[in-house]
């Protein structure tokens, strides 16, 4: 028995904070938190709305558990490989968390020959995203896609001209695993692409505007090459359909995405129906619509996460340090001893 409260006979009882730290550092605590992570992963997998706090709680707990272990366990600190591995995992978690606050994910569609000027069709961004997408400029210079028999898509080669950070224009071929990377944004080509009839609309005021209609993705919606379009600067909505007879992508043989050589565009508005070849016009009360030609459009996925290279570095460090730890641990005793 101790004569003094808080002090055990035979030794000095550690301060309450140290006791708490040691409890938080225990391997049992680690195990409990790892076990808690299992249902959290299952939840995250099944329900998109459960991908934040159910994961954050055990992961934050594991981080605290690690910090407590480092603070209280000299044996752990001495095993540098093991220590670096666990710290790398903590670093990975921190980077993922920061990445979630600052990321941007979006989509856009761009007609061949058109310039991207910072506008996305869909955007999903972290609350602290502070990139400079509005300064990104690139021009879709058209693409080539080969198809294997059975309409299996091959490599996408999309030529883009883009403005670098020094203000100079460059040309690159992007596609599949080679995104256009500029100002931290990665622009990936997608399977979403198709035909874009391009029109010139001259309003009754004499002003002319150029516009393209992105028809549904081809060949995914091969039989639905039509959509509604609002004439520029008016309230009038017309229906447009691309009509051609030739087979562009033959399921029986290898082929390549291309524009049809002979095509017509059917323009319908109420009871009025016009069939336009390139150069021909259709007249409306608000102005005249002239079919300029047919172009392609490409759908891009945009991704921004400045933590990516750091995540890769932390991951590599984790694997390397874990390997070093086990190497040091096992090299002293032969495997066949």
């Amino acid at each position: 028995m101790s004569a003094f409260p808080g002090i055990e006979a035979g030794g000095v009882e550690p301060p309450a904070l140290l006791r708490l730290l040691r409890a938080a550092a225990s391997l049992k605590c680690t195990l409990a938190l790892l076990a808690l992570l299992l249902p959290a992963i299952v939840l995250a997998y099944n329900f998109e709305q459960w991908r934040s706090w159910p994961l954050a709680v055990p992961l934050a707990g594991l981080s605290l558990n690690l910090i407590a272990s480092v603070a209280t366990n000299p044996a752990f600190r001495r095993q540098s490989g093991l220590l670096v591995f666990h710290l790398s995992l903590c670093g990975l978690l921190a980077l993922v968390a920061v990445g979630r606050l600052t990321y941007l994910r979006g989509t856009l569609e761009l007609t061949e020959g058109a310039t991207f000027e910072g506008q996305l069709n869909t955007v999903d961004a972290g609350p602290y995203h502070a990139g400079s997408l509005d300064r990104v400029r690139f021009i879709n210079g058209g693409f080539r896609i080969d198809y294997d028999p059975g309409l299996f898509r091959g490599a996408t080669r999309n030529t883009v001209r883009w403005l670098d950070e020094d203000g100079g224009w460059r040309e690159s071929v992007v596609g599949d695993q080679y995104p256009l990377t500029t100002r931290g944004y990665r622009f990936y080509t997608s399977y979403n692409k198709g035909f874009a009839p391009t029109f010139e609309f001259t309003g009754s005021n004499g002003q002319t505007e150029l516009g393209s209609v992105h028809l549904p993705s081809y060949p995914l919606h091969e039989l639905r090459q039509a959509r509604e379009w609002q004439l520029p600067g008016t309230d009038r909505t017309i229906w447009i359909m691309l009509d051609f007879d030739e087979v562009i992508l033959d399921p029986e043989t290898s082929s390549q995405f291309r524009m049809p050589a002979d095509y017509r565009v059917i323009v319908r508005e109420g009871e009025h129906r016009s069939i336009l070849a390139p150069g021909q016009t259709a007249t409306f009360p608000e102005g005249t619509l002239r079919l300029v030609g047919l172009r392609s459009w490409m759908g891009y996925n945009v991704f921004y996460d400045w933590t990516l290279p750091w995540l890769a570095a932390a991951g590599a460090l984790a694997a390397l340090s874990l390997g070093t730890h086990f190497w040091q641990k096992f090299m002293n005793k032969p495997w066949d001893s």
């Binding site: 599949d176 695993q177 080679y178 995104p179 990665r186 991704f303 694997a319 390997g323």
Partner: peptide
């Protein structure tokens, strides 16, 4: 060690291939 490497390299590939 190899499972960790598999996950890391898979993530790098997924980022390049599918943008995530």
């Amino acid at each position: 060690v190899f499972d960790t490497l598999m996950l890391i390299t898979g993530a790098i590939w997924a980022q390049d291939a599918w943008g995530r």
